[in-house]
Amino acid sequence: MADPLTDDFADGPAPTPATVRFEVSGELPADAARDLGAVYGGERWVARVTETPFEYRYTAIGDAELTVRRSQLRGALSGVVPAGGDYVVTWIGSGTAEVERLGERLVLPLGAPALFPPDHEYAFLVTDHDQRMVHLDRAFVHRVAATRSTVGDHSLRFDDQHVPEPEAARRWQGALTALVRSLRAGGTESVAWQQAKVVVAELFLELFPPMVDDLPGVLGQPRNARLRAAVEYVHDHAAEPVTIADLSAASGLSVRSVQESFRRVFDVSPLTYLRQVRLDRVRAELLDADPLAGAVGDVARRWGFAHLGRFSAAYVERFGEYPKQTLRR
């Protein structure tokens, strides 16, 4: 994949208060683990020397809604990135990079766009790499998505193992070229940058088509606006540990009001609703899985079901068949 993102921003427009612009660099592994881990709020980041003298450089420029970034490393770096940050599209120009999430390992392809797991904690290992990235703020992407008739204001989920179509990747590259040109020409407050940024977000949704959850229509009523925020949180974080306190924080409702609202609208507790969403996700994966390669237990654990016996009973109660029967369809 050709590379439209270059380093020569130094002669461009001066930063404005709205601009995100920073660089970290050095030659010590301990400094790299500290500096780069701080960028992502990561944990257990470790850097080490490989066959060449160690050095690193990480740059970012853009605004709070979208930044273009480059990470260069002579050495190896590993660590854990928490769930819930920006949507991050990356491509590797040289070296190696791999991620592991929910027990699944993925080697990132050279020269092709890939999506970092957006909704799960993941571990990574990169070695002697030159990596380009585009960070897109979630709220910004969701606002752009809300204008699409196929997405509307539904909750969004993305398949980080989706392989983009070559034509979509080509348009993505062209949009990034225009984005960087607008940044050089007018800075982040220019109309050209704002327009180019929206085009990139639209092409992100084309590059990695969102899997949309149909939320109950009753949530469209004004009186249920805060409950909707709690329900959207459930759908967005179904694979993660979710508590009533999380739903309270997401919706602005008290813990008691969250419980009462779920009872009033859905006649179930919040955690029962969460379990139903998780069961639906498991069923969707089983219907799409290869019966010869699929493992029901792995899928169930991926969606938060630690006790497989109780999971199987709940699955039968919801769908009228055992998980293995769904897998064989």
Rank of each mutant, 00 (worst) to 15 (best):
V88S: 07
V88K: 09
V89G: 01
T90D: 05
T90K: 04
W91P: 00
W91N: 00
W91D: 00
I92Q: 09
I92T: 15
G93F: 02
S94D: 06
S94R: 06
G95Q: 01
T96D: 04
T96F: 01
T96W: 00
A97S: 14
E98M: 12
V99H: 01
V99M: 03
E100D: 06
E100T: 08
E100R: 11
R101F: 15
R101W: 12
L102G: 12
L102W: 05
E104K: 12
E104M: 09
E104N: 07
E104H: 13
E104W: 06
E104S: 12
E104F: 10
R105A: 12
R105Y: 12
L106V: 15
V107F: 09
V107W: 10
V107R: 15
L108A: 15
L108R: 03
P109M: 03
L110K: 10
G111T: 10
G111Q: 11
A112T: 12
P113F: 08
P113S: 07
P113C: 09
A114E: 04
A114D: 04
A114Q: 06
L115S: 07
L115Q: 06
L115F: 08
L115N: 05
L115C: 11
F116K: 11
F116C: 11
F116T: 13
F116H: 13
P117Y: 02
P117M: 06
P118D: 11
P118E: 08
P118T: 09
D119A: 15
D119N: 12
D119P: 06
D119W: 07
D119E: 15
D119L: 09
H120I: 03
H120D: 15
H120Y: 08
H120G: 11
H120R: 15
H120Q: 14
E121V: 04
E121C: 06
